[in-house]
Design a protein around this nucleic acid. Structure first.
Lengths: 259, 259
DNA sequence: TTGCTCCTCACGTCACGTGAGGTGGC
DNA sequence: TTGCTCCTCACGTCACGTGAGGTGGC
C-alpha cells in the first residue's frame, strides 16, 4: 500500500493535487490506516495516471470525471476531439513563435503588408521619419475601423503617389517637421496651395473614397493636427482663406462665405 | 479615435480584458469623452497588440509589464527564453498526444514494457485473466515503490518461469479462481506443496531478491490475499502446517513450532 | 529527540467571466 | 422608442498554491 506522497510522486503531481481530486470527487477517498493516513492501492495509481494524462492534454477536470465513466465508443470519440484540440493548440503555439519573432525583429504586427509597403515608399521618397510614424498611427486607426476596405484604399493611395504634387506636399511636411522655423511661412503657403488644388480636383471628380474612412483622420493635415502642432492650425487657416473648410469631415466642404 | 469595443475587436479580445489591463496597469487609462467613454488612439492599439502577442505566448501579465519597458538587449534575451518555453510546451503537447493515443488503445500507461511482457507471457501460459489483472495490480505497486529496480526484478521473474513447478502453480491458481469449488481441496493441497518446495529451495539458496520489494506483496499467495479470497486463508493454513509462516514479510520464515 | 510526512481548514492566486444596476448614442 | 454600447462595482471560476496549527512515523 502507498502513502499519498508516494502516489503523488509516481504520477508526478503534488500531494495537494491528489487531495484536490478527492475534494472534487475525481478520485475516490481510499481507506485510512490507524493514524488516519490515506492508503492507496493499485487502482488509485491507475486512476491517477489516467486523470493526469487527460489533464495534461488540457481537458478540464469536470469533463475528465464524465469521460472516465463513459462507454468505450463515446470515450474514443472524445479522445478524437481532444487530439484535434491538441493539434490546434500546437498550431497556435507555432504561430505564436512566429509572432514573437516578429516582435523581436521590431516588425509592426498591427499593420497589413499593403500599409507597411506604403510607409516604406514614403521613406524612399525622403519623407521624414517623424511624419512616417504619424502616418503610421493614422493608418492603425483606419485598419482598426475598416480592416475589410484597407486593400482598396491602399491601392488608391499608391496611385495618388504618382501625382508629383502629393510627393511635393509630403516633402514640404517633412521640411516643416524637421527644418528651422524660419522658412515655415513660405512652406505653409505652398502646402496650402497644393492641398487646395488636390481637394478641388477630388471635389470636381466627385471622388468619394474618403467615405470609407468616415471620421478617421488620415490626411496629411490631420496628421499634423494629431501631433497637435500649432503650425497645423496656421495651415488650416491658409486653406480656409482659399475657400475650404475642413479635412476632418467626411468630405471636403466648400465654405459659402470665405472670411 | 476608437471606443473600447473597437479596440478590443481589433486585438481579438473582450472588452473586459481591456479593462482588466487598465486595472493592473498594463495599459494606461486613456482620455474620456463627454459621456465618460474611454477613447483610444493608435498607441493603445500598438500596445494592446504587443501585450496580446506576449500573453498568447504564455507570458504572465506581471512579466509582460516589466518586459515592455526593458532595454532592447534584455528584451531580446527574454524573447529567446519565451521562445524556448514555447518549444518545450509544443514538445510537451506532442508527447501528450501520444499518451492519449495509448489511453485510447487501452495500453497500460503505468507499467514499463518489461512488466507488460511478463503479464503477456502469463497469458500465453494460460493463466486466467482475473489472476493476470491481480498480478498487474501487484506490479503497479512494486513499480510505484521501486521503479529503479524493476528491470532486474523482472529478469529474475522471467528466469523463474523456466521452472515448470511455478507454471503449474499459476495454473492451479487459475483453476481455483475460475473453476467450481468442488476440487478446491486437492488443488489447494498441491499448490501448498509447490509453494513450500519453492520456498525451501529459495531459502536454501539464500536468495534475497525479495529484499528489493520489502513490504510490497507480490507473490501468488499475496495476490489471492489482496483479492481477499477466503481460499487464500486456507492455502496459508496448509503452508503453515508444512512449517512456513508468511509470504507478506521480507523473507520466508520457518516456523519454530509447527502447529 | 529531530526532521520529514501526514492531517484539516481556509484564504490566496491568476486572468479574466459574469451578472447587477444604471446611463449614453443612433 | 428600442437595442446596442458603455460605465462601475463586486462576486464567481478554475486548478490548485500556500501558510496555519497540529499529530504521527523512523
Amino acid at each position: 500500500m502507498l502513502t499519498i506522497g508516494q502516489l503523488a510522486d509516481f504520477a508526478g503531481v503534488t500531494v495537494r493535487t491528489v487531495r484536490h481530486y478527492h475534494q472534487v470527487g475525481l478520485l475516490p477517498e481510499p481507506e485510512r490506516d490507524a493514524s488516519g493516513y490515506r492508503r492507496y492501492g493499485a487502482r488509485a495509481v491507475v486512476s491517477l495516471i489516467k486523470i493526469r494524462t487527460l489533464a495534461n492534454a488540457g481537458v478540464p477536470l469536470s469533463r475528465i470525471g464524465r469521460l472516465l465513466d463513459a462507454d468505450p465508443s463515446a470515450f474514443a470519440e472524445s479522445i478524437d476531439r481532444i487530439d484535434g484540440d491538441l493539434r490546434d493548440e500546437i498550431d497556435r503555439l507555432e504561430a505564436s513563435r512566429k509572432q514573437i519573432a516578429q516582435l523581436a525583429a521590431g516588425d509592426s504586427l498591427v499593420l497589413p503588408p499593403e500599409v507597411l509597403a506604403y510607409l516604406d515608399r514614403l521613406r524612399e521618397l525622403g519623407v521624414a521619419e517623424r511624419l512616417v510614424q504619424s502616418e503610421r498611427d493614422g493608418w492603425i486607426l483606419v485598419v482598426a475601423r475598416r480592416p475589410e476596405r484597407i486593400r482598396d484604399v491602399m491601392a488608391a493611395k499608391f496611385a495618388q503617389l504618382e501625382d508629383p504634387r502629393l510627393v511635393r506636399l509630403y516633402r514640404l511636411g517633412s521640411e516643416i517637421a524637421e527644418g528651422d522655423a524660419e522658412h515655415d511661412d513660405t512652406r505653409l503657403a505652398e502646402a496650402a496651395d497644393i492641398l487646395v488644388a488636390l481637394t478641388e480636383q477630388a471635389y470636381a471628380a466627385g471622388e468619394s473614397d474618403t467615405d470609407a474612412l468616415d471620421e478617421v483622420p488620415y490626411d496629411l493635415l490631420d496628421i499634423l493636427a494629431v501631433e497637435s502642432d500649432p503650425r497645423a492650425q496656421r495651415l488650416l487657416d491658409l486653406v480656409r482663406k482659399r475657400g475650404w473648410a475642413s479635412w476632418t469631415r467626411n468630405r471636403p466642404e466648400r465654405l459659402t462665405v470665405p472670411d
